[in-house]
Design a protein around this nucleic acid. Structure first.
Lengths: 199, 199
DNA sequence: ATACAAACAGACTAGTTGGTCTGTTTAAAG
DNA sequence: CTTTAAACAGACCAACTAGTCTGTTTGTAT
């Protein structure tokens, strides 16, 4: 148990920063509060991160990107039926994340809404994540078309974007209403839409 | 042409504040920049508004609420076919508002995402607007059911929430992508969903 | 004309916050 | 055991910004 643990300290700052950003947004993130929360000091922080913005970028690259990957992209990889996979991915959200998490909004979309007009670097990083997300769903739908379990007259890329858009929209409404209800309704109606993609 | 025009000055501040909030968010709104933009001074501002927050509340109540009303609620009132009305309302957005407006995001959703976790007063005001919006679409769909032009086995309230959620979600993606494309795709797929509500 | 209150003008203040800078401690190599 | 650089500690700084406060101007009622 060494007192000095560079990778551990960095990770602690990253995770605490993710929580604080989820709670207050990036601009609402206070370095002092972060240090109080982690029990660290300015010296430690600025040793690991060049600036507050650099911390934000790291949260996007290392925390949020991985989260989307684990919850959405990974399950879609080995999937027989994309519609089923999306359906279970959707319904699992509320269970895994919990109501307290949900009413804070989607971390990806929160940051995108807040920072994309303010900082081009944030925007590009977040856009990359969105694009990858849509691309993978689109690919899964296209694969479904090949297998004949999805109608051939729909555009997989457009349908994929709609899935992400609807999900994020319902998440937004849930956040503002401070209730998971909107997200649940959104999921139900989104599944209804997805079923219309079957032959 | 009087120099002193209280209602005019207030209106000028309101509209400029709306633009600045649309550009930078409420927390990114700078009073000094607002005054520079309007050619007014601190004295004028704090004569008309008790605080920055009071200005924000006024923008929500008087600018954003009216905007939703004019673009969504009004058209739905005298409407024979709600699905058609929603469809034209959707497609008109890009035309009326223009690309420059669209890539800044939906003013309502922007503010909701930013402020609902930060300030309960904002959250409640914005929630009231969202609820009214969903309620009116739901009422139009229910009326459509009565007339037999919409399936009776769907829940109008849930479908209405999904319409708003999808629209806002697509708007969000468009904002982050800095392109109207996502919004157009979202509209197209949303219309596809809406058509499945017909008998 | 005069009084008076509303409508401003603008210098100044106080609190906040990201970032810096000097100095100290730990770990690991030689 | 020394040495050296990474890993901290924490006081301090400088910039920014909402809000205040005193004073001035304008419209208007009497």
């Amino acid at each position: 148990m060494s007192e000095r643990d560079a990778p551990g300290t960095r990770e602690k700052l990253l995770m605490a920063a993710f929580e604080e950003i989820h709670l207050h947004g990036f601009q609402g993130l206070r370095i002092d509060r972060l240090l109080e929360k982690t029990g660290l000091t300015k010296g430690a922080f600025y040793h690991h991160f060049k600036s507050k913005k650099a911390l934000g970028y790291a949260v996007v690259d290392e925390v949020i990107a991985r989260m989307i990957h684990d919850l959405w992209l990974e399950p879609l990889q080995q999937s027989a039926d994309p519609i089923d996979t999306i359906g279970t991915a959707l319904s699992r959200k509320t269970d895994i994340l919990g109501e307290d998490f949900v009413v804070l909004g989607c971390p990806l979309n929160n940051l995108a809404q807040e920072m994309s007009p303010v900082d081009e670097g944030f925007r590009q990083k977040l856009q990359t994540i969105f694009e990858g997300w849509v691309r993978e769903i689109g690919a899964a739908l296209a694969e479904g078309q090949k297998q004949g379990i999805i109608r051939s007259d729909i555009d997989p890329a457009e349908a994929a974007l709609f899935v992400v858009a609807s999900f994020e929209g319902a998440f937004s409404l849930a956040k503002n209403a401070q209730s998971v209800r909107a997200l649940e309704i959104g999921e139900r109606q989104l599944l209804r839409y997805l079923e219309t993609l079957r032959p």
